[in-house]
Design a protein around this nucleic acid. Sequence first.
DNA 1: CGAATAGTGTCTCTGAGACATTATAGC
DNA 2: GCTATAATGTCTCAGAGACACTATTCG
Lengths: 242, 242
Amino acid sequence: MAGEDRAEGFEKSGDLDFPRPLTTVDVVIFSIRGDQLQVLLVRRPAGEDEPFPQALALPGGFVDVVKDRDLAACAARKLKEKTGVTAPYLEQLGSWGSASRDPRGWSATHAYFALIPEEAGALTPDARWFPIQGGRLKEKLAFDHSDILASAIQRLRNKVEYTSLPAYLMPAEFTLPDLQRVYEIVLDRPLEKSAFRTRILSADMIEPVAKMRRGPNRPAQLYRLKKNSKPVYFVRTFNPPE
Amino acid sequence: MAGEDRAEGFEKSGDLDFPRPLTTVDVVIFSIRGDQLQVLLVRRPAGEDEPFPQALALPGGFVDVVKDRDLAACAARKLKEKTGVTAPYLEQLGSWGSASRDPRGWSATHAYFALIPEEAGALTPDARWFPIQGGRLKEKLAFDHSDILASAIQRLRNKVEYTSLPAYLMPAEFTLPDLQRVYEIVLDRPLEKSAFRTRILSADMIEPVAKMRRGPNRPAQLYRLKKNSKPVYFVRTFNPPE
DNA sequence: CGAATAGTGTCTCTGAGACATTATAGC
DNA sequence: GCTATAATGTCTCAGAGACACTATTCG
């Protein structure tokens, strides 16, 4: 059955009649809400034969070989279904597959992570936002979703050190102090204003709009993301403390 | 058949009787041979009903739900089978899945990439090394393996700018000029000797052995990787030209 | 000695960190 | 004027780039 031939790499692939792992896609969806980094989670159904009934989980599910042309389309579909949003930023995170992660049998999930602005979309009723505090989620998740989420948080933090990713968490128009605040929320440490501004402005990723944000103090210049702006990679990280 | 319920994320998962994609693992194995970056490829079988008969491909194959505990173990097994080597460096690269990449049906592959030293292992007869020239392979590959390889090359080059990954391509003992040469081969551009040495030596990743490499000129200090040394991440990239 | 490569030193430049200073709004 | 926040400027420091210079072997 699960013999050598197959494992050696297609040598007898004319015969495709052997057990296949389950194939799923899960999406880690981040947003900034109320000055916190938050992640979108759904509650699993309650059925008798359900794995992890009622547990919290990442939005996701089985690949649909009819509806989904490829993995990215599948992830985009799940994102759209849960949030109404179409791909501001969607990146593949990695895959997790083993005999034990799903009680129903050998399964492999393709994990993606998405960044969306606070204003975006209309949630489905089964989905809720949960804050990431101290770089972690308090709640336990179904399957190995806690591992996947931890990996997503680490990847996000890492990349925020040397990329413009937080721009995708911003509303259409924002000020430089707004953007710096989002960097600081994700990294959970303060950044130097002066160095921050130099870095962002020299990256040619945002452009000023002819408006200012007014408040009880000096107004701030409003900016927007430049058209078709891909993420920018800086040649240095922010120097992590110590 | 491929209806909404399933796609919505396990909601009816009691019913697992629907088409599953094929699940494979492929490994991009790099080594330095004869002053070139090379990749290990196998030739596909010639059978009538084989996809891409006789074409070159990355080593890999179906996940074996009996033999393979998880994806990484599956990748390590394939690496071992083809090269006799056990994991000097093995990292997940990403996954590729679509309806069209394999003529036998919807399939998803989990791609890994491995770095091994030149001396290592005994190849199986169906595997051969092919040089990467100008950052690309001349040969066309089966499936979407050309895309996967291109992605692996890009990831490798990227990481070499700010990590110690090339250390895993080195023999047990090597000199600093040797190591610099490997960096230069992968990046395909010369590096400054002085800056290179400062960076590597301050990274605390290698240690001198009490030997010198002798030649027709001044001998060079031999080094080895420190025990259990994980890859080092530098806070700056080498400044790319222009 | 010369050739060749190993290894070090010097000078400049860029960008981050720290922190002071100036600017502009509301009250 | 006072307060609060936006925006800029100054000084220092680390590390890269460029390149000169010294060191050590063989022949």
